[in-house]
């Protein structure tokens, strides 16, 4: 564990708390992609199957349980109490391609052909693309509530800090995982346009609005 990874994980945890705060305070899930949230639940469940086989630390176990359960709770919120505030027409990304594409990539690139390892690889490639339905929705709407942009910023910052963590781990431990590094770089790159608008508008107190 290093400081970059710790802060990254805390940003990830913080992003989820911001999303829950948005839902609780506005009693609405408007602007949030159900598909992206569902993809994250699949990502966490397929990645953390090793909860039962491989103990890392109490911190690691706690975070895994938090990510799985909060993702499940967010889906419940969007489907049950906040159902009427969800706009399905804005959430129009063809996510079948992401689910299938990650499957193909996992079968090609997995380190080992065991069930747990292949599902781990699947989760990495699925997470790489899971934000796309949310970004498409943002693009279609052209604007977003400020709290939603803070959520997305925290999520993007978590990914960017993981890259710093990998550089640090390479320098100090000679640890490299090609799959997570490549997928992580692609995933972070997807946030570039969003970061630009966030830094130039939201942080200056203006509304998030696409040019």
């Amino acid at each position: 564990m290093n400081i970059f990874r710790l802060v990254a994980d805390l940003m990830h945890l913080g992003s989820i708390l911001i999303l829950l705060l948005k839902m609780f305070t506005s009693r609405s899930c408007a602007g949030i992609s159900f598909k992206t949230q569902a993809l994250y639940l699949i990502v966490f469940v397929t990645r953390y199957l090793d909860l039962f086989t491989h103990f890392v630390s109490v911190y690691n176990t706690f975070m895994k349980i938090f990510f799985i359960s909060s993702a499940g709770y967010i889906l419940y919120m969007m489907r049950v109490p906040l159902k009427d505030t969800y706009n399905k027409h804005l959430d129009a990304f063809r996510w079948e391609f992401l689910l299938g594409g990650a499957g193909v990539l996992a079968l090609v690139f997995t380190h080992k052909y065991t069930v747990i390892e292949t599902l781990w690889t699947y989760s990495i490639f699925l997470e790489m693309m899971a934000i796309l339905p949310q970004l498409l929705q943002l693009q279609r709407t052209g604007e977003a509530e400020t709290i939603t942009t803070h959520y997305l910023f925290a999520l993007g910052a978590y990914r960017a800090l993981y890259i710093v963590n990998w550089i640090y781990r390479y320098e100090t431990e000679h640890h490299v995982d090609a799959i997570s590094t490549m997928a992580g770089i692609v995933q972070t790159a997807l946030y570039c346009d969003f970061f630009y608008v966030y830094f130039t508008r939201v942080l200056k107190g203006k509304r998030f609005k696409l040019p």
């Binding site: 994980d9 990830h12 086989t53 491989h54 890392v56 690691n60 995982d177």
Partner: peptide, 10 residues
């Protein structure tokens, strides 16, 4: 340590 079952990142 590279790959395999020992994934220690979240």
């Amino acid at each position: 340590q590279d790959g395999g079952d020992g994934h220690d990142e979240l």
